[in-house]
């Protein structure tokens, strides 16, 4: 386990809200989903089903993109994609 300097507040109270953002769950990933934008039909089903809200829609391009800081690599998006444009790759550490 990585040793980080931590503040052990009495009773384990987290004194500032929103601290879970600092915890990058993308570290857990074994498989990395990769979107082939040339095949994507912008149906946004992957955005709907992502359990970690790690798929975002770019408002300008209306394209989906994966936030790899928080994507745990569950690959539900891969399974859901109706045009099979999301591939999986083994995560290189």
């Amino acid at each position: 386990m990585k040793k980080k300097k931590q503040n052990f507040e009495q009773g384990a109270v987290v004194t500032k809200p929103g601290s879970s953002k600092n915890y990058h769950t993308g570290d857990w990933r074994v498989f990395r989903p990769i979107i082939d934008q040339s095949k994507c039909i912008k149906c946004y089903q992957c955005w709907q089903v992502c359990p970690d809200a790690a798929i975002r829609i770019d408002k300008k391009t209306e394209r989906v993109e994966i936030d790899y800081d928080y994507c745990k690599g569950c690959l539900i998006c891969v399974k859901q994609c109706p045009v099979k444009c999301i591939a999986k790759e083994v995560e290189k550490k």
């Binding site: 009773g11 384990a12 109270v13 987290v14 004194t15 500032k16 809200p17 601290s19």
Partner: peptide, 8 residues
């Protein structure tokens, strides 16, 4: 707001 009883 603060978080009480978080994961350890």
């Amino acid at each position: 707001p603060k978080t009480f009883g978080p994961i350890g």
